[in-house]
Design a protein around this nucleic acid. Structure first.
Length: 800
DNA sequence: ATTAGCTACGAT
DNA sequence: TCGTAGCTAATT
């Protein structure tokens, strides 16, 4: 009897939330849930994911179409992946198709294109259409791109005309996106090549030599033979004479292959580290689900904990996933981990090619690799048996995906720790308020490492009130004390890091005659001036020329205001002409490895001063850095966002933590316009507990996380008023459904930070609730989950 | 995301 | 009255 399959279509569209049912044809009767298939969908063919298989009910089967092809012979999505994807679809209010596609490299397994075929082979064709007709006849799988390349703009018109006359028809062709890479290996055929045979080989000298080389009966690659002086002709002869057998083996592309394992040093753990490991180990050994929050100050040796935990997991024969916020931070970790785990390490991040990613996933799926390092997308790898998830810098905003589905890696990691029965370690020097709160409430077990390794002191921090600097007539970016600290550090041949969290030269451009601020024509945000003489929108990245005169009043009095890293760089080179300065921000790290190279050469001592955006604050360990300057940690305090203080405190603590990692005590200077703000005060004292207490108090007062859960709803429409009206209606419905103001609140509608982007107007509603599930159900009941005019962001990082 | 199908308006 | 652009609804 035939079977049916419920299938989700691989389409990232929120209006399609349910599965579609197809007939499984006889030849594919082996299909299982979790397989990827090709199905007809509307007029097209699409990739689909089988989620359920059941016997066919004869009644309405004639309405159903058949699966046309399969992509996998065995199930691609494991049961555990299915569970994770189901959780995500439920939690983030999107379709299972949308979440499942995250688990395949490149989000599509096949590439589908429309092709044209000749239907009527003997048709009478007019002269102007003849060439196209003949081309399609001669090239059975040609698509619109090929035809356009030859017949230019005529192609489309003629195709339409031919289709209308029923002379040609369209169909869909598809091919696998990933290509496996193979290499030929050969092995001596010992049943044929006996010692007697070798002894009798007098004529084929080179072949004899080659066979002696292959004496160990193991597989050797053709490359290896070539490198040892045996040409491909010899290899061919060996195989033809049946002296050797050949085999194709899949090889895995690995862009980190050049990072070779170094000699392993035995590292003695500190008492703090030992204590932490004692708490973690039992859960790993017994394979239990357990969440830890590892709160360790900068330089306390959290990485060593990750390594030790991974060693323990490997001993259990399981895999360990180590997540870092950004690709660039993988570099250092890869080196540390390769020291210990050699080729058992694989790296995954979004800049890998689809093929590299495919290979990495294959190695993980087949348990060929045990340690997986990666940025947030690595959580979607097909783990064989996952025993440990580490999330380093768990507070970091890059763990949140900014486009649909807007997941937070931490939410998924917590769920996966349950599903895989594994240990989760969230590590940070400045944990997110939510995570620390969860630890206080025993949802996570708190592990504290308050001391630096070897009891190195935390840096000494001084705060400079920039308002006073201005009173003294200092209009520079650098305060006098910071300039003095730089001078002193340079003289001692030590290194300096300076952080200014804004790239570009000036932060806004204004006409001094009429006050017009140059804004992005697409999204309306102020444009930033860059020294290579262009204006750039830091939201949508478009570049515009600098106007000579004001577009409004024609005045030539256009001035640049505010300071970015480019201006800071200029000031530093002017003030310290002998210092070697290097800048690190998104503009200097365009190429794939540039970030790594800049840090490497700074670490190697080829530069004295490293300046840049928050990139300079993250994760690296450079012993000769003894001084750190923070120019604008408090700039974010002026933003109307409830997480502004948390971000400011984190930035100060993280950046200051770069200083004094070697033998000399570090010195840090913070320049501030809000020196009395608690985020700055606690940052200076490096006092997380005090900051947490103060922040928690405010969060409770204002009903923000961790006391409330947030949902941001963005209503968008081409007509401003329609968007606003719709938002107001939604707000009204919410108010009617949730009357308990102490438990359910809705704020807004407020224009989005990019209120008008490409002619679409946006308004935000912010829901604050004690129960995400309740509001979730409400949004489903109101069909907001399938309304393409409303974007839903569960646990948004910013509220604007 | 695509596309088939329908409505409304303009040229013939 | 036909043709086409623009919008909507449906995709098993």
């Amino acid at each position: 009897m035939k079977k049916l399959a419920d299938i989700y279509i691989n389409i990232p569209v929120k209006t399609i939330v349910h599965s579609y049912t197809y007939i499984i044809p006889e030849q594919f009767s082996f299909l299982q849930a979790g397989s990827r298939v090709v199905v007809p969908f509307g007029a097209r063919k699409m990739e689909g994911f089988v989620v359920k298989i059941y016997p066919m009910d004869e009644e309405n089967s004639d309405l159903l179409k058949e699966i046309v092809d399969i992509i996998d012979t065995e199930s691609y999505f494991t049961t555990k992946i299915m569970q994770t994807a189901r959780f995500m679809a439920q939690f983030y209010l999107c379709s299972l198709g949308e979440t499942l596609r995250l688990f395949i490299p490149g989000k599509n397994s096949i590439k589908i294109r429309q092709i044209y075929i000749v239907k009527d082979k003997n048709a009478e064709i007019s002269n102007e259409e003849k060439a196209v007709y003949e081309y399609i006849k001669a090239n059975p799988e040609c698509d619109i791109k090929q035809l356009q390349a030859i017949f230019k703009e005529d192609a489309e018109i003629i195709i339409k005309s031919l289709q209308k006359k029923n002379i040609i028809d369209s169909d869909y062709a598809y091919k696998n996106r990933g290509k496996n890479k193979y290499k030929t290996y050969i092995k001596i055929n010992s049943t044929v090549v006996t010692t007697e045979l070798l002894a009798a080989m007098t004529r084929k000298k080179v072949q004899k030599k080659a066979l002696e080389f292959l004496g160990d009966e193991k597989f050797h690659s053709i490359d290896e033979l070539k490198n040892n002086g045996f040409s491909s002709t010899i290899v061919k002869a060996l195989i033809e004479n049946n002296y050797a057998v050949a085999e194709e083996k899949q090889i895995f592309r690995d862009s980190y292959d050049m990072v070779r394992p170094q000699e392993l040093m035995d590292i003695e753990l500190t008492d703090e580290q030992k204590n932490v490991m004692q708490q973690i180990s039992p859960y790993i050994e017994q394979g239990l689900t357990k969440m830890f929050l590892l709160h360790g100050v900068t330089g306390s040796g959290k990485t060593q904990i990750y390594i030790e935990a991974a060693v323990k997991v490997l001993a259990q024969g399981k895999q360990a996933l180590i997540l870092v916020p950004e690709i660039v931070l993988t570099g250092q970790l890869v080196v540390s981990l390769k020291k210990v785990f050699a080729d058992d390490v694989v790296v995954i991040h979004s800049r890998l090619t689809v093929n590299e990613r495919n290979d990495a996933f294959m190695r993980i799926r087949t348990n060929n690799v045990k340690i997986i390092i990666g940025a947030r997308s690595a959580i979607f790898a097909p783990f064989f048996n996952l025993g440990l998830i580490v999330m380093d810098e768990e507070h970091d905003a890059s763990y949140k995906q900014d486009e649909s589905p807007r997941y937070h890696t931490r939410d998924i990691a917590v769920k996966m720790a349950e599903i895989y029965s594994s240990v989760l370690i969230l590590g940070s020097a400045t944990p997110s308020i939510e995570s620390y709160f969860a630890a206080q409430n025993n949802e996570y077990q708190l592990l504290e490492m308050p001391h630096r390794i070897d009891n190195k002191p935390l840096p000494q921090i001084r705060c400079i009130d920039m308002r006073e600097e201005l009173h003294f007539g200092n209009r520079h970016i650098l305060s006098r004390p910071l300039a003095a600290l730089i001078e002193e550090t340079l003289q001692q041949k030590q290194q300096i890091i300076i952080m200014l969290n804004r790239r570009g030269f000036s932060t806004f451009v204004m006409c001094r005659s009429c006050g017009l601020v140059m804004k992005c024509p697409q999204c309306g945000l102020p444009l930033v001036y860059h020294r290579q003489n262009y204006l750039q929108c830091h939201h949508c990245d478009i570049r515009l020329p600098v106007p000579d005169v004001c577009p409004d009043c024609q005045s030539r009095y256009i001035k640049f205001f505010g300071s970015g890293t480019e201006k800071l760089e200029q000031e530093l080179t002017e003030t310290f002409p002998n210092a070697r300065t290097i800048r690190l921000d998104r503009d200097t790290t365009g190429k794939k490895m540039a970030h790594q190279e800049i840090l490497q050469s700074f670490k190697a001592g080829r530069y004295d001063i490293l300046l840049g955006t928050q990139m300079v604050a993250k994760g690296h360990d450079i012993p000769n850095v003894t001084a750190v300057g923070i120019i604008s940690a408090d700039a974010s305090l002026n933003m109307p966002d409830f997480r502004a203080a948390e971000r400011c405190f984190g930035l100060i603590t993280q950046t200051a933590g770069r200083a004094g990692r070697g033998d000399v005590k570090g010195k840090v200077i913070i320049q501030s316009y809000n020196p009395e703000h608690y985020a700055v005060l606690c940052g200076i004292k490096q006092d997380y507990a005090a900051f947490y207490k103060q922040e928690l108090y405010l969060r409770k007062e204002l009903f923000y996380p961790p006391y409330a859960k947030l949902i941001k709803l963005t209503v968008q429409d081409k007509v401003e008023q329609s968007a606003l009206d719709k938002a107001l209606q939604l707000k009204e419905k919410f108010r009617k459904t949730f009357k308990d103001f102490s438990r359910y609140q809705i704020i807004g509608p407020a224009p989005s930070i990019i209120a008008n982007f490409r002619g679409i107007y946006r308004f935000n509603l912010l829901v604050k609730t004690v129960s995400l599930a309740d509001v979730n159900a409400f949004l489903r009941a109101e069909k907001i989950d399938i309304d393409k005019a409303v974007k839903i962001d569960i646990n948004p990082l910013n509220t604007m």
